[in-house]
């Protein structure tokens, strides 16, 4: 298997598919809480149901006693669903307390998940939230204010940012804050958004823009432009401002550190259209400003990581 699953993940998965005693596969009839999350297009879906021991007078003191799931998904999605149900049944939480169960708790319960599989745990936490909302509605419990407006998100209101996985702006905004996501790669691992064609990464109003807006301008944080093995972007649909930001990021995070190792550096003078004017300084200024070196050390990485049309001119 290419994935490095923890023993706990494999153990839960095996127990679940064998239908061992104590596993939680299934769907409760007339559940007290029902929540579904995911989409088949994304490759995983979770349907989560739970039953409570009802308190005779105060719904706030209902306690979750039974939890069940149906999951379409990979090994870790099934294991995360098992983890969710086991956690809830073992802890005897009230639905409102259950809202505080985070995807990180699921990850910890599973003994860790591969980074690119974090979204399986997010799916568990999201389905749980939706089930608690359903419980509140059935029990006439005033839950408003405890939760983001899931109904609006469910109705897919708001602009779709990542069309490959149908991820909307309100959802992204909430999750970026909730999960403290700082880079495009972190968003993709946790929410899948941006994991396919990649056009939303740097499109106006895309993932990088949302990150910049929420966390402020990147302060040298390694963003996608500096990441290794990331798909290069097509230049289409990118404003010149985005291009400039990208060029700056690659210069700062990739090229400059390389030059500094050799006692030099690079200074960005101007960007006009696809022409990047820069000055090589220090050691690199003396021995590396030959045109072929500029091409190799500066232009090539920029072409690969930002846009093939870029041209570098050393001044």
């Amino acid at each position: 298997m290419p994935w490095d699953y923890s023993d706990k993940v494999l153990e839960l998965f095996k127990a679940a598919v064998q239908g061992d005693a104590g596993t939680h596969m299934g769907e409760l009839e007339n559940p007290d809480g029902f929540g579904e999350y995911g989409s088949i297009a994304c490759g995983d879906t979770l349907r989560f149901t739970f039953r409570v021991r009802r308190h005779p007078t105060d719904p706030a003191r209902d306690v979750i006693t039974v939890a069940r799931y149906l999951t379409f998904g990979c090994t870790s999605a099934i294991a995360a669903s098992e983890a969710l149900c086991s956690l809830l049944e073992a802890q005897g939480k009230t639905p409102v307390e259950a809202l505080k169960v985070t995807n990180q708790e699921l990850v910890d319960f599973l003994g860790g998940l591969p980074e690119q599989k974090i979204h399986c745990s997010v799916m568990g936490a999201e389905a749980l939230q939706r089930a608690v909302v359903d419980w509140a509605r059935k029990r006439n419990y005033p839950i408003d204010g405890l939760l983001p407006d899931l109904a609006a998100e469910n109705a897919q209101e708001g602009r779709i940012v990542c069309s490959c996985f149908s991820v909307t702006e309100p959802y992204l905004r909430r999750k970026i804050r909730e999960l403290n996501l700082r880079t495009i790669a972190e968003i993709t691992n946790a929410l899948k958004a941006g994991g396919a064609c990649g056009t939303c990464h740097h499109a106006p109003g895309g993932l990088q823009d949302l990150l910049n807006e929420i966390w402020g301008q990147p302060s040298g944080a390694p963003d996608e432009g500096a990441g290794a093995g990331v798909q290069p972007l097509s230049g289409a649909g990118r404003s010149s401002e985005h291009l400039e930001r990208q060029v700056e990021a690659v210069l700062k995070n990739v090229i400059s550190p390389l030059l500094r190792k050799e006692g030099g550096d690079i200074e960005l003078i101007d960007i006009k259209g696809y022409k990047v004017y820069c000055r090589l300084t220090g050691q690199s200024g003396r021995c590396r400003s030959a045109p072929e070196n500029v091409k190799l050390l500066v232009e090539q990485p920029l072409k690969e990581q930002v846009d093939v049309r870029l041209q570098v001119i050393a001044v």
Binding site: A16, L70, T71
Partner: peptide
Amino acid sequence: QRLRDMSPLYNCGRTAE
């Protein structure tokens, strides 16, 4: 069959996208 029993897609009669 076991995996289908676990799948919410199989259990609500939805067809593939």
